[in-house]
Nucleic acid binder design. Structure first.
Ligand SMILES: NC(=O)c1ccc[n+]([C@@H]2O[C@H](COP(=O)([O-])OP(=O)(O)OC[C@H]3O[C@@H](n4cnc5c(N)ncnc54)[C@H](O)[C@@H]3O)[C@@H](O)[C@H]2O)c1
Ligand SMILES: NC(=O)c1ccc[n+]([C@@H]2O[C@H](COP(=O)([O-])OP(=O)(O)OC[C@H]3O[C@@H](n4cnc5c(N)ncnc54)[C@H](O)[C@@H]3O)[C@@H](O)[C@H]2O)c1
Lengths: 257, 257
DNA sequence: CCATCTTTGTGCACGCGTTCACAAAGACAT
DNA sequence: ATGTCTTTGTGAACGCGTGCACAAAGATGG
């Protein structure tokens, strides 16, 4: 198996920071929009604004790719689109399989943004026999039995899992065994994979919970602000009373002062 | 359990690290599974394995919430479920609206995992008049015209955007103006919002591109490994010519005239 | 009550990512 | 050519997150 665990010095000049990699698609999207408007060049300031990031960060990100800008002018849009595309590996075609063609899987299959960037839905796979042959988004659904053959025939290295959580790990293992080395997981499970296999997860539930946390915090602060000087009361209460309660009390630690 | 002593040096009541917040739902999910299996206590080691994180990291995360563990034993599952739920704000009900009931929006509406954790789909909203009144996942779709009223009537503070990219910013502004302060965005756009509004984005395309990057890198390393001594050649070339930065000796850095 | 054993909670060091600030590079006008 | 003006590319400082390693807490058994 492709164990990236070689005696390589690691972090070589080839080592683009992960945070930067994650932003490249963002830049690419903004650049593509500019390209469509036939804008010839952009400054780091403008592009950063379009991508919603700090301009210094953007320049540093680009510095990892090389010096593609012109001082006093900015970056050549077309050229940068090409460089980033190449860096991300989008100049080649990536056949992708989607496993689990339910509500979500079908939506993904129908998603146009897939093909727009070198990603091609090579096959749709589901365990439900009654779905076999039925076309979704113009592509006939194939049965899980043929998973290995499909992966192999199409040279698929990227798989998308949209099955129920209970089936995800098993599906994952079959995909990996068949040669898939990158997985995008929509099922709410922690997938365990061997070294050399990349997994990224998209978890709606987690995102909502994070939002809820901040939402609650906002509500709490608002309440405190309304209560005025109650902040001090909270601090005092927290210091004095530590029994059984959490860091900030279950109910907003503000007593009706 | 209520062995709380004034031992805690004024725990970061509000300052829970963002990285920790993002992991709490993960812990909660693992704990819920344990709870369903009636497991009374769990060690940081076990729970960390279930959540796919480092045990030291998990303990540090929990330390931000307070000292809820018992040394020599571990954590009380039920109690921890409660504490994390409370911290995340899941002990209350969060009405959510989904805007843009197309392929993805419909899938989201049908998603069972929504309601399972205090999130309630309060309304489905779409701009297409022909969809108005038509039920999706048992909930009648309402027209965008009534967006403000719906938000207000239901006390919605969390909105999900699943419209085409072109409409996202506009929809976002209407949501915010109507009182929504947390947005989960599925459209491939950078949303600009006023201070105090949280936005999280789920971007399939970006995830795939990140996977493609690593996939390409893996393929490159594999090729290098096969080529054997070529590694040295590359190192030499890299040392000699550092203007370009060709990873695999690709197109030279030719500036566009 | 003491000894031993398990597991937490955390101080500390380290590395990554972000941001500032500015010298240098180049465009452009004169 | 020379000067000015714009914008890049990056050195350096800083802050956050991670993981190690261990002392302390508490359970358990004698
Ligand atoms: N629908 C959403 O918006 C949404 C959002 C977030 C997460 N998710 C997650 O995505 C996954 C799919 O959600 P969904 O709503 O599409 O569920 P679904 O039940 O509609 O679809 C699941 C599909 O997977 C197929 N399947 C089951 N076991 C399989 C196996 N072993 N191999 C291949 N296919 C198999 C089923 O036949 C079904 O077609 C779930 O894990 C869900 O939690 C869904
Ligand atoms: N389908 C996917 O799997 C997927 C994946 C990633 C991202 N996305 C993104 O999610 C969004 C939705 O994707 P989709 O496949 O469901 O598209 P879709 O075209 O099927 O659905 C879009 C829906 O939004 C509605 N709409 C349009 N303008 C609106 C407005 N101003 N207000 C309210 N509703 C409006 C349309 O009537 C339609 O029902 C797109 O931005 C897409 O890029 C989709």
């Amino acid at each position: 198996m492709a164990t990236g665990r070689t005696h390589r010095p690691a972090t070589r000049s080839r080592g683009i920071p992960e945070a930067t990699v994650a932003r490249l698609p963002l830049y690419l999207r903004a650049l593509t929009a500019l390209s469509e408007r036939s804008v010839p060049t952009v400054s780091s300031e403008e592009l950063a604004a379009a991508a919603g990031v700090n301009s210094a960060k953007l320049r540093k990100d680009f510095s990892y790719l090389g010096s593609y800008g012109t001082r006093g002018v900015g970056y050549d849009v077309e050229y940068l689109v090409y460089q980033i595309s190449r860096e991300l590996g989008l100049t080649q075609d990536w056949p992708v399989v989607i496993v689990g063609i339910g509500n979500l899987g079908a939506a993904l299959a129908n998603y146009g943004g897939f093909a727009s960037r070198g990603f091609r839905v090579a096959a749709l796979i589901d365990a439900d026999p009654s779905m076999a042959g039925k076309p979704v988004a113009g592509i006939p659904v194939q049965h899980t039995d043929d998973l290995e053959k499909i992966i192999d025939d199409n040279g698929v290295s990227i798989g998308v899992i949209a099955t129920p959580a209970g089936a995800a790990q098993q599906v994952c293992e079959r995909l990996v065994a068949a040669g898939v080395t990158s997985i995008l997981n929509f099922a709410p499970t922690v997938l365990s994979v061997p070294d050399g296999v990349d997994v990224r997860k998209v978890d709606l539930s987690i995102e909502l919970q994070i939002l809820a946390f901040h939402e609650q915090r906002k509500a709490g602060e608002e309440a405190e602000a309304q209560a005025g000087a109650v902040l001090e009361a909270e601090a005092a209460a927290a210091a004095a009373k530590e029994t059984g309660k959490g860091p900030d009390g279950d109910v907003p630690a503000v007593m009706p002062a």
